[in-house]
């Protein structure tokens, strides 16, 4: 049956409309759970708030478990899903740069737009910084192209490259997540309370 759009159950033209609707809800929930505050986001790195870690871990797990169940029951063809291509060094370097930006400014690109929407000045500066970064990247593209398009590993998933049974992988991942949640709570209780 699914995925709905590639199988023409929902016409292709609805693609962007659905994306916009989902995007609005995503932004709403980000803001509602306080993710447009850079203090909350940076809390992961300083150990006084692990909401970000918990939310994104939980989201990944809910979707992974849900997809596996839907695939098992035949409602979704997992092989038709989009898998992001892996450009190894591009991902590592880009991830490191984004991490530095994240801890320095307290926003990730999505939440920064969310914070701009509620009028946070630091987020406006942050988005301006993103624009400058994009400009520098595009100007140096000739230089960076071999990293950007090189080291292509194909459309691999962890389960493919580790040759692991997906069910076991998700189960162990879930247990690891629960342990990490409990552990992060312990840290949070030890660290001095920060009011924000």
């Amino acid at each position: 049956m699914g995925p709905l759009i590639p199988n023409d159950i929902i016409p292709f033209e609805w693609n962007s409309i659905i994306a916009i609707v989902i995007g609005i809800f995503f932004g709403f929930i980000l803001e509602a759970s306080g993710f447009s505050s850079s203090r909350k986001l940076a809390g992961v790195f300083y150990g006084y708030d692990f909401a970000v870690l918990k939310v994104f871990f939980t989201a990944a797990l809910v979707s992974a478990i849900g997809i596996l169940y839907l695939d098992y029951l035949g409602y979704l063809d997992m092989s038709m899903l989009y898998i992001h291509p892996t450009y190894l060094w591009g991902a590592i370097i880009g991830g490191a740069i984004m991490g530095i930006g994240f801890v320095a400014a307290g926003f990730c690109p999505g939440t920064s737009l969310c914070a701009v929407a509620i009028g946070k000045i630091d987020a406006i500066v942050y988005v301006f910084g993103i624009m400058i970064g994009i400009f520098i990247f595009s100007q140096l593209y000739g230089l960076l192209d071999p990293i950007h398009n090189g080291y292509f590993q194909g459309y691999v998933t962890l389960m493919d490259s580790l040759d692991f049974d997906p069910y076991w992988f998700i189960f162990l991942f879930t247990i690891a997540a629960v342990i990490i949640f409990a552990f992060s709570d312990l840290i949070r209780k030890r660290v001095k309370k920060v009011f924000y």
């Binding site: 797990l61 478990i65 596996l68 098992y72 189960f171 879930t174 997540a177 949640f181």
Partner: peptide, 19 residues
């Protein structure tokens, strides 16, 4: 409530193994 949710999570993930 968080403990309950965590348990539900583990049960769901474990259910995948038992299918």
């Amino acid at each position: 409530r968080y403990v309950i949710l965590a348990v539900v999570f583990v049960i769901l993930a474990g259910g995948l193994l038992l299918l």
